[in-house]
Design a protein around this nucleic acid. Structure first.
Lengths: 366, 366
DNA sequence: CTGAAAGCGCTAACAT
DNA sequence: ATGTTAGCGCTTTCAG
C-alpha cells in the first residue's frame, strides 16, 4: 500500500469495492455501476493519485493505445511544414482521444527488417499512419488489401487499394486552371511534382491540363517541367520554361516551394511575379503568404488531413470506443468532411487569391 | 499453439527448453546459456516468427523502452529545421538501442494536467526530453533537483539545476567576435535572440560582447537589438540597427534565421551582405549555405546534440544495458564529446566561413 | 449492480 | 547451465 504508486487494488480497497468495479469505471465510463459507487471510486482515484498503467492495461487485449506516424527518411523531413502540419493534426486528434503518437522513420533497414510489421506484432502500436509515401516504397505492396491497420496519408497508388486519406488534388488542378483562364491567360506553363513517384502530383497536372483544354487552352507537354517539389528545382524548371516559351503569361506550380523557386527565376530575367507574369502555387504553406508578392495558391488543409487520418485510424482499431464517442459527439456530422466513410476520403481544397496573379499584359503577349 | 502469434512459451516448447532460458537469451544476450542451446532457441524464434510483446516485457519492471520528446506548442515547431535535426538525432540513437520515440506537445492543458508526470507514472515512457524550453515553462521548477528522468535539450536555467545537454553558446559568441575582429571590423552590431526567455541567447550575446571588449572593441547596448529568433523580426532589427548607426561594418546574429532577415534589410538600403557589410549567423541551418551570398555562421551540430541527449537519457534510465553497451563499444571514448559525464555537457561548435563576411571598406567606414 | 477468478506474456528471484 | 515459481497491474468472462 505504501510502496510505490497506487495500483487498482489500492483504489478498490480505499473505496471499498472490488477490482472489477474500478476497472469497469475506468473503461466503460457509463453502463452498469451506480452513481454513488462511481463517485466513491472516482474520489479514491483522485485521492490516491492513481494512474492506471498503460502497460498493464494493454496486456490483456494487446492494445497499446499508441499510433505510429511513419515518415520517409528524407533529409529534412522533420523540418518540412508539410509533414509538420499533418503530424500536428494527427497528434491533436490522438491526444484528445487518449492515444499517443510514436515516431518512426522509414530508413532502409527499417524497411528491410520489416519493422513496420514488428511494430504491430510486438504491440508497440495499434496502427501506422504513413506520410510521404511514394512509388519508391514498394513494401507497401504488403498491405495491399490486407486488413492491417495501415493508412497512407495524402497519396494513393494506382495498382494497390491501400487505405488512404488525401486532399482533392484533381479539384486543385481545376481551380488553378479556372483562375488563370478567368484572368485571361491563354499561354500557360506548368511546373509539376515528380509525377512518376507521386500519384497525386500526376493527378493535379492531369486535372490542370484537362480543365485548360475544356476552356479551349492547350498546354503542350513541352511546357510542363518537373520541379521535384523543391525550391531549387522549381527555379530551374521555371528557367527552362521561360527558355522554351518566353511569351508565357502564367505558370501553375505543383507546390508552393517550386512556386517560390519560380519567383527567383522570373526575377532573374526581369519578370516580376504578379506584374509581368502570373504564378499560382499549391499547398498554402506559411511561406506562401509571406512571399513578395504573396503567393496565390491552392489551400490544402493539412492539419485537418492529419486529424481525419487519425480519426479514421482510431475508428478502425478501436470501434468500441468509437461508438461511444459517436454518442458523445451528438452533433452528428461534426467534422465529417471528406466522406471519411469511404476507403479513400478526399478533403476539399480552395483557391486563395493573393498578389502573384495578374492579367496578361494587354496587347503585349498572346 | 496455433492461435494468434507465437508466445515465449511456444518458443520454449519448440526448442525444448524453459521459459527462463528463452527470456535469458532475449535479454542478457551473453552470460550463461550454452551456445548450442542459444542456437536452438534462436532458430525456434526465427521459425515461429516470434516477437516478444513490449507490453508484457515492460510490465514486470515497469519499463516501456520508450522515450518522450516534448516540444513547445509553437505554431510550426515541427516545421523548424532546428527541432527537426535534434529529433532526428534523438530518433536515430533511440532506434539503434531499441528504444522508441513518443511525441508530446507541451500545450497548455498538457501542462495544466501535468501530463508530463502522468506520462512517466503510467509507464508510457521511461524518460522525457524537452526541446525548446524557455523561461515561460515554469512547470520545469518541478524537476529542479528531482531525479525524474527529465532532460532539457539545448537550453538551461539560471535558477534551477535541471539535467541539460547543450551546445557551447559561449564559444559561439567568442568565435564570432574573433572572426569579425580579425577581418578588421571595429564598428559592430548585434541582433540577439530573446535573452529574457532563453538563457543560451543571453550567453551568446554576453560572450560576444565580452570577447569584443577583450579585443578592444566596444559594443554599446544600443547596438544590440532583439530579433526574437525569427526572419521577420531579424529584418526589423537590422533596419533599426542601421538607423542607429549607419556606419556599421558588421553584424553578428543570434541565429541564421535572423541573419537571413538581416540580408533583406541590408539590401533594401542598398548594402550588399558580403560586400558592403559583414554578417555572421549562428546555427548553420540548411538555408544558410543556400543563401546568396552563403552565410558565414557558427555551426552547431544539432543532430549530434540529439544523439547525445538521447544517449544521456538512456544511460540514466537503463544503466544495466548501458554497461553492456559500454563493453561492446570497446573503442573507449567513442562519440564521447561534450563530456556527457557531467550534468550539463556542452557540445563544441565551430565557425564556418562563407561568403557573407568581408573586410570593412578601406578608408570608408571607420 | 458487483465480485471472484483466470489469465495476458513476460521477468527475475530462487532453486538445482 | 537451466528449470520452477511467483508475480507485474489490469481486463474480462462468469457468477451472484
Amino acid at each position: 500500500m505504501s510502496k510505490g504508486r497506487a495500483s487498482i487494488r489500492d483504489v478498490a480497497r480505499e473505496s471499498g469495492v472490488s477490482l472489477t468495479t474500478v476497472s469497469l469505471i475506468l473503461n466503460k465510463g457509463d453502463e452498469r455501476i451506480s452513481d454513488s459507487t462511481r463517485q466513491r471510486v472516482l474520489s479514491a482515484i483522485e485521492k490516491l493519485q492513481y494512474r492506471p498503467s498503460r502497460l498493464a492495461r494493454g496486456l490483456p487485449n494487446n492494445r497499446s493505445r499508441t499510433l505510429a506516424v511513419l515518415i520517409p527518411a528524407l533529409q529534412h523531413a522533420f523540418a518540412d511544414p508539410y509533414f509538420g502540419e499533418i503530424i500536428s493534426g494527427i497528434y491533436d486528434y490522438a491526444a484528445d482521444h487518449d492515444y499517443r503518437i510514436m515516431l518512426e522513420v522509414a530508413r532502409r533497414d527499417f524497411i528491410r527488417r520489416k519493422q513496420y510489421d514488428i511494430l504491430i506484432e510486438e504491440c508497440s502500436v495499434d496502427g501506422i499512419l504513413f506520410i510521404g509515401a511514394t512509388e519508391e516504397h514498394r513494401f507497401l505492396a504488403e498491405f495491399d488489401g490486407s486488413d492491417k491497420p495501415f493508412i497512407v496519408v495524402n497519396n494513393h497508388f494506382q495498382q494497390w487499394k491501400l487505405r488512404t486519406v488525401l486532399c482533392d488534388y484533381a479539384v486543385a488542378g481545376r481551380l488553378a486552371a479556372d483562375h488563370l483562364v478567368e484572368l485571361g491567360h491563354r499561354r500557360v506553363g506548368h511546373i509539376s511534382g515528380p509525377a512518376a513517384q507521386v500519384l497525386t502530383a500526376e493527378q493535379v497536372t492531369a486535372a490542370f491540363v484537362d480543365r485548360l483544354a475544356e476552356h479551349g487552352v492547350e498546354l503542350p507537354d513541352r511546357l510542363i517541367v518537373d520541379g521535384q517539389f523543391t525550391v531549387e528545382m522549381g527555379e530551374l524548371a521555371m528557367q527552362e520554361l521561360l527558355t522554351r516559351d518566353s511569351e508565357l503569361t502564367a505558370v501553375f506550380c505543383g507546390n508552393d516551394k517550386m512556386a517560390l523557386g519560380a519567383y527567383h527565376a522570373c526575377r532573374r530575367v526581369g519578370r516580376t511575379p504578379g506584374e509581368d507574369i502570373a504564378i499560382v502555387g499549391c499547398d498554402n504553406i506559411p511561406a506562401a503568404q509571406m512571399a513578395d508578392p504573396p503567393l496565390t495558391t491552392i489551400h490544402m488543409n493539412f492539419y485537418q488531413l492529419g486529424t481525419l487520418a487519425c480519426r479514421t485510424m482510431i475508428d478502425l482499431v478501436d470501434p468500441v470506443r468509437c461508438r461511444r464517442r459517436a454518442a458523445d459527439e451528438q452533433s452528428s456530422d461534426d467534422g465529417h468532411n471528406g466522406h471519411p466513410e469511404s476507403r479513400c476520403p478526399r478533403l476539399p481544397v480552395s483557391l486563395i487569391a493573393r498578389g502573384s496573379c495578374c492579367e496578361p499584359a494587354v496587347g503585349d503577349r498572346v
